[in-house]
């Protein structure tokens, strides 16, 4: 288990290096200068800017300087917001995104697991077909389409919810976060429901459930103690894709509902060609997702006794 963990961490670091390197050189390859309105700047100003951003040195040197800083968690200074470090920018923006993401995950998993179990226990009934349809539709409708439609009908047309998630003091409100949370949780609900249904069907059809029945255990205990318990364990693995989706979903949903989160910031930096911020956020996102997937994998090993021991013997 320890060896496996170390191996995984090494791969994770390698992956991050690849991402940082790719990010760096892609940004370098970009045509033109990163500074907007360059025509209006004097040559001295440009030179000064170049010096500030280390752009006067050879690319290789810049690369190693950049990587050295990244390793320390320093992503440089934003082009768009002068005098603000990208790290600072990320840290101030992460809060709203994290809140939105967690809310969506909690809401989505609760509904998804319930739906999945109901569908599996009533296999081939209307509950099953309904849940399956919802699940397929949920992974098919892009979250921003869903968000747009929710916003139009519930906020604009029927005025049940505020259009923007923040109040006049730029604070997130609970009611304001309701629609973005729902929009973001649709994917979570659908994937969890699908996965839970499949796992539950497989578990309920397994030999050990037949044996448990043969023991005379009640249906309730079979479902809860033997069924759901075992079906839930592999469902942990959907947390990985879920995190990815929450992240990409938040990029657009934060924009639609005006949530001052990291996703909104990232899209902004793309619109404004704010390269240090794009690079920094990209690396940060990658770090986050890779860590989540690593933690999920390790956690899975801890929770499932079969893997726990197999790993321990290695």
């Amino acid at each position: 288990m320890l060896r496996y963990t170390i191996q995984r961490v090494i791969y994770m670091i390698l992956t991050l290096i690849v991402i940082a390197t790719a990010t760096f050189f892609l940004m370098k390859l970009l045509p033109g200068s990163p500074f907007r309105n360059q025509e209006k700047l004097t040559p001295e100003q440009i030179q000064m800017l170049n010096k500030t951003y280390n752009l006067d040195k050879p690319v290789v040197e810049q690369y190693f300087a950049y990587m050295g800083k990244v390793a320390k968690g320093d992503f440089g200074v934003s082009f768009q917001f002068k005098n603000r470090s990208v790290t600072k920018l990320i840290s101030t923006r992460i809060g709203p995104s994290a809140q939105l993401g967690l809310q969506a995950i909690i809401l989505g998993t609760i509904i998804g697991i319930t739906l999945g179990i109901a569908a599996a226990l009533r296999h081939n009934s209307w509950i099953d077909y309904g849940a399956t349809m919802i699940a397929v539709a949920g992974v098919s409708i892009p979250s921003f389409v869903f968000a747009g439609l929710l916003q139009y009908f519930l906020s604009v047309k029927w005025q049940l919810f505020p259009v923007i998630a923040t109040n006049s003091e730029n604070q997130l409100t609970f009611i304001g976060l309701a629609l973005p949370t729902i929009a973001l949780s649709v994917f979570v609900t659908s994937t969890t429901a699908r996965y839970m249904r499949t796992e539950m069907l497989e578990v309920m059809g397994s030999d050990y459930i037949v044996l448990a029945k043969a023991k005379g255990i009640s249906y309730f205990n079979i479902v809860f103690k033997h069924g759901i318990r075992n079906a839930l364990i592999p469902v942990i693995t959907v947390i990985g894709p879920m995190a990815v989706n929450i992240m990409t979903g938040s990029l657009v949903i934060e924009r639609i509902f005006g949530i001052p989160g990291l996703g909104d910031q990232f899209v902004n930096s793309i619109y404004t060609n704010d390269y240090p911020t794009i690079m920094g956020t990209t690396i940060f996102y990658s770090f986050l997702l890779i860590s989540i997937i690593l933690i999920v994998d390790l956690l899975y090993g801890v929770i499932d006794p079969r893997i726990r021991v197999a790993g321990g013997n290695k």
């Binding site: 992956t15 690849v18 990815v244 990658s286 997937i293």
Partner: peptide, 21 residues
């Protein structure tokens, strides 16, 4: 593959897309 697999899909797509004007 192990190294590349860890890279989040949409992030790569975004990066490479930015690289084309």
């Amino acid at each position: 593959v192990e190294v590349i697999y860890g890279i989040p899909y949409l992030i790569v797509v975004i990066l490479f897309r930015i690289a084309f004007e």
